[in-house]
């Protein structure tokens, strides 16, 4: 099966790079991968989203209307995409900045308080990798060791000294993910 994932939030939250790390990790694990960003004027400060598809089958459409899993990182994305999770699918969110919370009963819902936790650690740059840790804890589609390799591939060399910290954040993410509702 292929897992069709959407990550949606603000430009600048590391949405695209979170997707990229996931795609790299999937590729390292020998899977088929596709990373399809929304691009264009909306990238500049507005909303940004990326579709990541990982699996064992040939990937057909990188353009989708519904997804197996959606990661929501801001209010606009919650409004726009809550209904796009397929029945039985998964929705992950960070409640920071959300005025409302997801309400669907036919999907599993998980909360990852990554903004609060990364602020506590005084490093908002590790927010997205923490989200990824939480996501993969509940959706184990790629092995953790490939995430580390994915980081080496997707980060420029000057940032490689940050990888241990990123992996720590990844583990924290896996620990702080809360199940709100599971089916």
């Amino acid at each position: 099966m292929n897992e069709e994932i959407l990550i949606a939030g603000f430009g600048g939250q590391g949405v695209l790079s979170m997707g990229k790390i996931l795609a790299y990790a999937g590729m390292m694990q020998g899977k088929e991968v596709c990373w399809m960003p929304s691009y264009g004027p909306e990238m500049r400060g507005g909303t940004a989203n990326v579709t990541v598809i990982i699996g064992d089958k040939t990937i057909y459409s990188p353009i989708l209307q519904t997804f197996d899993t959606i990661v929501i990182l801001n209010q606009q994305s919650l409004i726009k995409f809550e209904s796009a999770v397929r029945t039985g699918g998964k929705l992950f969110y960070d409640s920071n900045g959300l005025k409302t919370l997801p309400t669907r009963k036919d999907i599993s819902i998980y909360h990852i308080p990554a903004t609060a936790k990364s602020a506590e650690m005084q490093n908002l740059k590790i927010f997205n990798i923490m989200m990824l840790g939480g996501l993969l804890e509940k959706l184990p589609i790629v092995n953790k060791k490939f995430i580390e390799q994915g980081l080496y591939k997707s980060l420029p060399e000057r940032a490689h000294n940050m990888i241990p910290l990123n992996m720590e954040a990844f583990s924290i993410g896996a620990n702080i993910v809360e199940t709100i509702h599971e089916i």
């Binding site: 590729m27 991968v33 990373w35 399809m36 960003p37 990188p62 353009i63």
Partner: peptide, 10 residues
């Protein structure tokens, strides 16, 4: 097209 140009695959 812009979609294939911008998307990443193996």
């Amino acid at each position: 097209d812009g979609a294939i140009g911008q998307m990443m695959e193996k």
